[in-house]
Design a protein around this nucleic acid. Structure first.
Lengths: 87, 87
DNA sequence: TATATTTGTGTATTATAATAAACAATTATG
DNA sequence: CATAATTGTTTATTATAATACACAAATATA
């Protein structure tokens, strides 16, 4: 039995992704917060895997160009849901 | 020029996905809230595209078995980030 | 090494998500 | 049609995310 993915895991991964993306652009937490209209503290907390609001997450994700792939994923799940009774 | 995906769009899509998934399991908003330890009002607001916390989103997403695919996506982006300077 | 920058952490305050309860409007069921 | 169940929407309260500020620790730069 493999250990299941937890919500905490996902939050930590999201934080890690934010940090790596941010650093790849040479931005400080302060810089990123400023362009997104968020405080440095909010970025700091997000990157360390703390809870956040969906708006904060999507602002960050959007800034790094990941909104299309997320949208695609959601659209696929919705489409998949509509077909599920056909099998 | 195609119209870009907005954060509002994504929130609406997430709400739609929750509603469809929930209904496919024959659950009321009340039912879903109960199993997730959330109030019906929180489910109601999420399904109508309002802002929410990451914990709330991930609880819902997790309940419908979508955490692995999200994790995979994040992992891919992190890996992709590590490789980006190779090109 | 010395200085500057960035990051982690603390405290207090503000904004807002989450809860609880009630009621009307809608939708499903007998 | 009548009744039950579900959903949408309010109001008030509580919990907590976000902000602003300061300061120490860590990291990068001259």
């Amino acid at each position: 039995m493999i250990d299941p993915i937890t919500i905490k895991d996902v939050k930590l991964k999201l934080g890690e992704l934010c940090r790596k993306k941010r650093q790849s652009y040479g931005l400080s937490q302060e810089d990123l917060g400023e362009v997104l209209g968020l405080s440095r503290y909010t970025i700091q907390k997000f990157e360390s895997g703390k809870n956040a609001t969906l708006d904060t997450v999507l602002k960050i994700v959007n800034h790094f160009g990941l909104l299309p792939s997320i949208t695609k994923e959601i659209d696929q799940e919705i489409a998949n849901q509509n077909n599920i009774s056909l099998y």
